[in-house]
Nucleic acid binder design. Structure first.
Lengths: 206, 206
DNA sequence: ACTGTATGTTGACATCGTCAACACTGACGA
DNA sequence: TCGTCAGTGTTGACGATGTCAACATACAGT
């Protein structure tokens, strides 16, 4: 065998396939990923991937799972470094979430797309998605306990907040929002509005 | 020629194709639509559709446009019948929007999916989508003028509101939200939160 | 050295979108 | 009445795709 990678066996084909597939998705969307094209780019035959993934969908789902895990890490980093309370924290988290979507539009779309749904049974995917949500629920619970926001079902509140950022991210990457608008400002306004809507407010009547 | 439809010529193949494609999408998602399968179901050859649509994507985009127009109609109906002001109006509109998505998940997905984006140039699609948004902007402007909600850029506020309902609809149809939750309650809480976040509120400090 | 298992390759097949060539039909002008 | 022509539908063919079965190669443990 020569020294470098190219013997009959690859070394770590699985990882190489995931990386290259992610690159193809970033370049041309999930639809542009082809078993044959992928094999060509990795320097391997068209059917080689089937030794590591049950089928094409499984490969895409694995890329989606990797996306969730990257997103988790980024949010956790912000969670650790952001100010302890107030709108600012929420804003930073929401901003990071949307920014991830904008930087990885095709992968983000894949994470919430049909293939991913079809294989929700895969623990890899399920756990990554759930971790994200639970992180959000915890945050909301903390805000409730410190008396900043209304005491409602924290999961319902989490769904509301998630809806807002996910909706904004989706509309942005699907180019439904005029590109002329100030994206950062829109993110700020979205998180601000949701935050204000959740804050406790004084009653004046009965 | 026999009396009924089946001569060599079809009569209104274009409409029949659109209907049948919509049915296939509802049954098995956009990915299940096949030119050959579609032709088979309509009782026509595989290439017949090409006399009416440039290619498969154009056909799907036409179905998406029809979806926008149906959604427009439904929202307009609610707009006409809902109480003139207050949260209730917002809630009814949001509810109708999400309900449409839940009743037509695959078509809703198509309306905001890749193919539709690729052909945004088609006036049919562009107009339908814009009409929807302008309707929302008008509503928000009216609320601003009656002093109910903050005077901010109405388009920005519209984006925020749209993000919330679109996000909620997306999460629901993509099964990211546990099916156990009370959907109507969640819709209510979402619109309520956005509404409260937009309302004018008294300052206590400077 | 032998053998089994993991990994990679090649050949083949059905299915798909699409195009070019052809066929049928109805309408309109001579 | 007939001929022509544009509109509409059909068939044959092609290249690309996902996937399977059969085969080849490499490595690990006896």
């Amino acid at each position: 065998m020569t020294d470098e990678a190219r013997a009959y066996h690859h070394g770590d084909l699985r990882a190489a396939l995931l990386d290259e597939a992610a690159a193809m998705i970033a370049e041309g969307g999930a639809a542009s990923v082809t078993m044959r094209g992928l094999g060509r780019r990795v320097g391997v035959s068209r059917a080689a991937a089937y030794r590591h993934f049950e089928d094409k969908t499984a490969l895409l789902v694995a890329v989606a799972a990797a996306g969730f895990s990257r997103l988790n890490d980024r949010l956790a980093a912000v969670d650790a470094s952001a100010p302890r309370s107030g709108v600012e924290r929420i804003r930073r988290m929401g901003e990071e979430y949307v920014r991830f979507a904008l930087e990885n539009p095709a992968q983000y779309r894949l994470m919430y797309g049909r293939e991913a749904i079809a294989r929700r049974d895969l623990p890899e995917l399920r756990e990554a998605g759930n971790a994200l949500f639970e992180q959000l629920v915890d945050m909301i619970q903390a805000y409730q306990e410190s008396g900043k926001i209304k005491r409602q079902d924290p999961r319902a509140q989490a769904y509301v907040a998630w809806s807002a950022v996910h909706g904004l991210a989706s509309l942005l990457i699907d180019e439904q929002i005029l590109t002329a608008v100030d994206v950062d400002g829109l993110i700020r306004q979205t998180t601000r509005t949701v935050w204000d809507g959740m804050r406790v407010r004084r009653r004046r009547g009965a």
